[in-house]
């Protein structure tokens, strides 16, 4: 004897389930445990995790660090924006601000860098084109991620968090050069 969904229920409704229901609950429960286990497992075995090294930072301090970083490793300029080529393994600073990513980065394929992301005004979104890697850039927070570019090529940073009316103009640039070609690229690339 079944009730409808709009009938009040008389007596005890805690009754045994059908076999099919029990089987489905078991499958769903096990699946939920798999879903849960995948995340810690990827931290142990996977190459892509969003943890990073995270600190609070005053926007002015972050701007200062980025300027020092640019002064130390600048190798050229493009569209009025400094091109910076830090040595492999170093700390790399990237500022999101209305409406640009500063500076342009030149990185080596296969090398690991610590990429510090922050904003000096509102929220921005770091989207690596064409690879579709995304991070939130929040003012007041230094989000330092260990990144290893896999292959050489031209990359763009598209802002994908709304940051005002110039949001769609906010495009930055990352250049990844082959590991052995760094010296060649150093020479006079200031187009």
């Amino acid at each position: 004897m079944y009730e409808s969904g709009i009938a009040s229920v008389q007596g005890v409704w805690w009754k045994p389930a059908h076999r099919a229901e029990k089987v489905w609950i078991a499958i769903a429960f096990i699946w939920c445990m798999v879903l849960f286990a995948m995340m810690p497992l990827w931290h142990l075995r996977g190459g892509q995790n969003p943890t990073g090294i995270r600190h609070r930072v005053e926007p002015a301090d972050f701007r200062e660090r980025t300027n020092e970083f640019i002064a130390a490793y600048q190798v050229g300029e493009d569209a009025g924006m400094p091109i910076v080529e830090p040595p492999p393994g170093s700390d790399v600073y990237l500022i999101g601000m209305m409406w640009q990513w500063r500076p342009i980065l030149r990185l080596q394929a296969g090398a690991e860098y610590t990429l510090h992301l922050s904003s000096v005004d509102v929220n921005h979104g770091f989207n690596l084109y064409p690879f579709n890697v995304n991070f939130q850039v929040v003012p007041g927070y230094d989000y330092a991620l260990k990144v290893t570019p896999t292959e050489a090529g031209e990359f763009r940073i598209v802002c994908n968090e709304f940051c005002g009316v110039g949001h769609h103009l906010m495009v930055g640039r990352i250049e990844v050069v082959p590991a052995d070609a760094t010296a060649a690229a150093d020479v006079g690339d200031d187009r």
Binding site: A79, G80, M81, Q100, G125, N127, L128, Y129, P130, F131, N132, N134, R156, V158, C159, N160, E161, F162, H167, H168, L169, M170, V171, G172, R173
Partner: peptide
């Protein structure tokens, strides 16, 4: 999955300093 941003007025990026071509 191509990385097209949400909440974006112009994914042809005309006027942006660097070109992005999906």
């Amino acid at each position: 999955t191509f990385g097209i941003p949400r909440r974006h007025w112009d994914i042809s990026f005309s006027g942006a300093p660097f070109d992005v071509q999906y």
